[in-house]
Design a protein around this nucleic acid. Structure first.
Length: 433
RNA sequence: GGAGGGCUCGCCUAGUGGCCGAUGGCGGCGGUCUUGAAAACCGCUAUGGGGUAACACCCAUCGUGGGUUCGAAUCCCACGCCCUCCGCCA
């Protein structure tokens, strides 16, 4: 939800933001009108209530003779209040509806345009070359006994998989590496629920345009999260946080579920695009003034993680038309996938400014001691399945083995290579090299 | 799934139809006293909306939503959450 005061003071800024997104500018005027209408309705109801309150008080002090007349007047006012309150409710609902249609204001500097207008900020690492026929991650994974799509489909349907043997170990190794690095950077590690109630889902903006993407458990009125961002943001709803010691940062691990509606035919092979995967997500609460800096920090942690995995990547600044409704700015990191000879999204970090927090009522105490709406930011540290896919492809060797990045070895029993048919080393902690 | 108990201001608590936005204590902030601190004493100490240049002022909020009533923290209904016991269970 955008700030209505800002809308009142500077509607042109909101219109300009809509234009950059390629979104409907007239929604801004609808919202402004709904806001004005609501204020009018509130004022009317408030005034009537004040009058009725006074009339009510008068009932007590009335003498027996005047009592009937006073009561009559109070009764009449009560009826009027009821009507005015009904109108107020309607105006409220209309405002809310209009409010939900307007996405967050985009930051200055966000590229205009859509999916194809993302700007590459930098490219890091050498694109690898191979002097043998490159295999895709599924071929490699199957040869290693790491990925089993067929049985995933048998048990759960398309876009489900089993990670087996070295694949399962890789999952845990990546989770460990991600969490360990996050903790070292000062994040509080969190294991978050992947089933959440409607408020958290709606508050984070996932029940709007992308509702089709979400699995719902109808019977219990719960949703499966597409990212632990939902639970992490919801964790502090209706709270006033103490941010005097700096941003509040969480690294949340959870399973993530996505219906992938509308992605038919895309990435049907392997585990790049699946209905379920596990992810370590960074989430940060901070004062709005600090959000842009915090965003850069999240991006830096993402980059360092990929560097530790020895993966070449590029950083892109997502164009306004391709931002989610909550984001004011978004950076994706795309890593190189040799089988596709292209960079593919591996992580994504969004600055949601106060947009989510306003809906979820997440505040912090300002220096004046007054509560203010906080900013929220999120960023992928490691989307595990897709990262496994990328690792297998980038680090594949001519003989079918796969190089293990040094940083991962402590959680893989110290092995330097994954080899078809290898006996699995017990993943006992090995001191980092 | 069944049976009970509970949900009031940061925390604990008083309050069973108007005098209650709400008592008292703790905590926090400011002051008096003190070389300093503690103790003691005094004062302040919610949030949201509307309104204002800023105040003033008005409205709402006692888990949530309805209802009864001129008037509800207090009465009625539904729901949510927490606790205890029983059943089931990783």
């Amino acid at each position: 939800m955008i700030d209505l005061r800002l809308l009142r003071d500077n509607p042109d800024a909101v219109r300009a933001s809509q234009r950059t997104r390629g979104a409907d500018e007239s929604l801004v005027d609808v919202l402004a009108a709904a806001d004005a209408a609501r204020r009018e309705a509130v004022q009317r109801a408030d005034d009537l209530r004040a009058e009725q309150k006074a009339a009510s008080q008068a009932v007590r002090g009335a003498s027996p003779e005047e009592r009937p007349a006073v009561l009559e007047r109070a009764r009449g006012l009560a009826a009027q209040v009821k009507e005015a309150e009904e109108a107020e409710r309607e105006a409220d609902a209309a405002l809310r509806e209009a409010h939900l249609t307007v996405p967050n204001l985009v930051h200055d500097g966000v590229p205009a345009g859509g999916e194809d207008d993302a700007v590459t900020l930098r490219t890091v690492g050498e694109v690898p070359t191979y002097d043998f026929a490159v295999r895709d991650h599924l071929e490699i994974g199957e040869a290693l006994g790491a990925i089993d799509m067929e049985r995933g489909a048998k048990v759960s349907g398309a876009r489900f998989y089993f990670l087996t043997g070295p694949g399962a170990l890789l999952e845990f190794a990546l989770a460990q590496l991600a969490i360990t690095r996050a903790v070292a950077a000062g994040f509080t590690p969190v294991v978050a629920p992947s089933l959440v109630g409607p408020r958290a889902m709606e508050g984070t903006g996932f029940l709007g345009a992308h509702e089709e993407e979400v699995y719902k458990v109808e019977r219990d009125n719960l949703y499966l999260v597409g990212t632990s961002e939902v639970a992490l943001a919801g964790m502090h709803m209706d709270e006033v946080l103490d941010l005097s010691g700096g941003p509040r940062r969480y690294a949340g691990w959870s399973s993530c579920y996505r219906r992938e509606a509308g992605s038919y035919g895309k990435d049907t092979r392997g585990i790049i695009r699946v209905h379920w995967f596990d992810k370590v997500e960074m989430f940060s609460f901070c004062p709005p003034e600090e959000a842009a800096d915090e965003h850069r920090r999240l991006l830096a942690w993402e980059e360092e993680f990929l560097q530790a995995l020895e993966l070449p990547y590029r950083v892109v600044d997502i164009a306004a038309g391709d931002l989610g409704s909550s984001a004011a700015r978004k950076f994706d990191i795309e890593a190189w996938f040799p089988s596709q000879s292209t960079y593919r999204e591996l992580t994504s970090t969004s600055d949601c400014t106060t947009f989510q927090a306003r809906r979820l009522n997440i505040r912090y105490r300002g220096e004046d001691g007054k509560p203010r709406i906080a900013a929220t930011l999120n960023g992928t540290l490691c989307a595990i399945a897709r990262t496994i896919a990328c690792l297998l492809e980038v680090h594949q060797q001519a003989d079918g083995s796969v190089h293990v990045p040094v940083a991962l070895r402590p959680w893989l029993g110290g092995v330097e290579r994954l080899t078809p048919g290898m006996s699995l080393a017990a993943p006992l902690p090995v001191p980092a090299a």
